[in-house]
Design a protein around this nucleic acid. Structure first.
Length: 549
RNA sequence: GGCCCCGUCGUCUAGCCAGGUCCAGGACACAGGGUUUUCAUCCCUGCAACACGGGUUCGAAUCCCGUCGGGGUCACCA
């Protein structure tokens, strides 16, 4: 049976890169009717935040990735599956057991160096232009040395005695990779705070959880020799390894969480003169000195705060975390499809694929070796396709989810209305597009976009046609898509003009902008009362403008 | 810098392992045109790549070597 695992360290929101790794692991397990495990690697006390694990879990669920074993998504303290707990911080007794075994076998040893001492050793190696390898003592410290170190208050860590021999790893995507003997030094497997390091916990857990395929980013390739040595020392199986290519950002560098903060910072710097910093600090819940620190590049606020401030200023930031994509109105189906094709392809010309199709086609053999760039424009194209493809019920769910994540005026609408909006906006690229197009219906006071006014309302015949529309619509009964369309068409015929001549002034009168769903839909959605009122308001507005000129 | 990985249109990629069917196929983007009451959608056409240099071979995008370029990694982070 195929068993894969995704093992994030909970340091914040789930990053697209991480999501891609999770997706490939999940796809592999589902393809082979195996198991997919979620394991939380929270062995770094300094970096973990209490809510981060839950956030990662929420993000994964939004994407539509589920796990057979792992923390209970509704209650992290509970486990699903026979190999729990799935939070590494709760497995310390297990690691200690294997650690003792290594110690007993003479394959690991205590060490008592302070950070400063290690730093010195490294420096020395660097001045001699040699790679730093920890100098293994001739004789491993014994119980007595341990006591003495403890008495002296020295940090007590444990190192693995790395065997000095050539190491060969077989990787599904890289092929056979060979490392010469002596490339790797003894590394720490238990930190002085008693927690295992990543290498150790990962190897032990992969064995105990019976993981068969380790699929991870290429950045782990250099870790694999260490893991393999550990597996051999402990008598563990060696799983199949697949080191995927990395996804890089459009800027050239790696897709980094800092990118959003940097983009935002750059925007502020370029527009200092027209930004009210006090108001900005308020929306970002920052003190003036915190904002100052951010502007000086000393620190960066949390993701959600950046998002709030960017929204406040109307700046679009590159999406990096999964939650950013939710906020921008992307569909998880589209993101999955897009991510799957970053470094993998089904071997034919198919691109737009559903989750089931991806599962059926997935194959580790078809992973690409070369790094790829995250192309947002292509993502948008994928999203457009999936907006059309997703079942209406599901699309509605996604839309509500999106609306909840915002402070949208549309949140007050019920399901039936929302479904109508979605239908009227067929062809929209993102959920954000739908919201933008329809929010005029839920706003009491609309504002006229000057460009739309000049381009449409100020046209010579516009006020007259608008007034005629008002008269015709006022008499209209019943008020539905069909009747409205007929009324408008008749008006066009009567005046001998194209549909746009009548529809556009109406549109601007109702929405303040030149963008909305098809005109008849827009009128139905707005309702007769409000429609007439807004036409009156627009007519009024035009009169004042005339006097003003 | 040491070690490791990678290198086909601007981008994602097919083709490479099993050399000829590839003057290199698809998609996104871009340019031009068309449909449409706005936006978006949709349709058509076009542009555009084997990093470079040596081999091997009758023949190389495909095999070998070198150069250059990009990325990763060198923690008591994961």
């Amino acid at each position: 049976m195929v068993v894969t695992r995704f093992a994030p360290s909970p340091t914040g929101y789930l990053h697209v890169g991480g999501a891609r790794t999770a997706l490939f692991c999940w796809l592999m397990a589902r393809r082979h009717k195996g198991k997919f495990i979620l394991r939380i690697e929270d062995t770094d006390q300094k970096r973990n935040t209490p809510t981060a694990a839950q956030q990662v879990i929420n993000d994964l669920r939004w994407l539509g990735i589920d796990w057979d074993e792992g923390p209970d998504p509704d209650d992290l303290t509970r486990s699903i599956g026979p190999h729990g707990p799935y939070l590494q911080s709760r497995r310390r007794n297990i690691y200690d057991k294997y650690l003792q075994k290594l110690l007993d076998l003479g394959k690991a040893y205590y060490c008592f160096d302070t950070p400063e001492e290690l730093q010195n050793l490294r420096q020395k190696a660097q001045t001699h232009k040699k790679t730093f390898l920890y100098p293994r003592p001739d004789k491993f410290p014994d119980a007595e040395d341990l006591e003495k170190a403890r008495a002296d208050g020295r940090p007590i860590a444990v190192r693995f005695a790395m065997p000095c021999r050539e190491i060969v790893i077989d990787d599904v995507v890289r092929g056979r990779v060979t490392f010469a003997a002596g490339e790797f030094g003894d590394f720490i497997i238990r930190k002085s705070d008693g927690f295992p390091t990543y290498h150790f916990a990962c190897v032990v857990d992969d064995e105990l959880m019976q993981v068969t395929h380790v699929i991870r980013g290429q950045e782990h390739l250099m870790n694999t020799p260490l893991h393999q040595a550990l597996q051999q020392a402990l008598g563990f199986r060696i799983p199949v390894y697949a080191h995927m290519s990395v996804t890089v950002s459009e800027g050239g560098g790696k897709l980094s969480k800092r990118e959003r903060a940097n983009t935002f910072l750059q925007f502020i710097k370029n527009n200092t003169h027209r930004i009210n910093l006090n108001a900005l600090a308020r929306t970002g819940h920052l003190t003036p000195s915190e904002l100052d620190a951010f502007l000086n590049g000393q620190s960066a606020p949390d993701g959600p705060l950046i998002t709030a401030m960017a929204e406040h200023l109307g700046v679009h930031l590159p999406e990096i975390n999964l939650i950013d994509f939710l906020h921008s109105g992307y569909l998880p189906e589209a993101l999955i499809n897009f991510l799957a094709l970053l470094g993998w392809n089904p071997g034919d010309n198919r691109e737009i694929m559903t989750k089931d199709e991806l599962i059926a086609a997935f194959d580790l053999e078809r992973l690409i070796k070369a790094n790829s760039l995250f192309d947002r424009q292509k993502l948008i194209a994928f999203n457009t396709e999936h907006m059309r493809l997703v079942e209406p019920i599901k699309l509605l769910d996604h839309f509500k989810n999106y609306l909840r994540a915002h402070d949208s005026p549309l949140a007050q609408a019920d399901d039936a209305i929302l479904a109508q909006l979605l239908k009227a906006c067929a062809g929209a690229r993102t959920l954000a597009d739908v919201e933008n197009k329809c929010k005029f219906i839920f706003i009491d006071k609309i504002e006229f976009d000057p460009k739309a006014v000049i381009k449409v309302l100020k046209k010579p015949d516009a006020p007259d046609l608008l007034a005629q529309s008002r008269t015709a619509l006022a008499q209209l009964h019943p008020w539905n898509e069909n009747s409205i369309r007929q009324a408008i068409e008749m008006l066009c015929k009567k005046n001998n003009v194209g549909l746009g001549k009548v529809a556009q002034p109406l549109r601007v009168a109702l929405t303040g902008t030149a963008v909305s769903p098809p005109i008849a839909d827009s009128l139905v959605l707005l309702g007769k009362q409000k429609t007439l009122k807004r036409i009156d308001a627009a007519l009024q507005f035009l009169k004042h403008e005339e006097y003003g000129d």
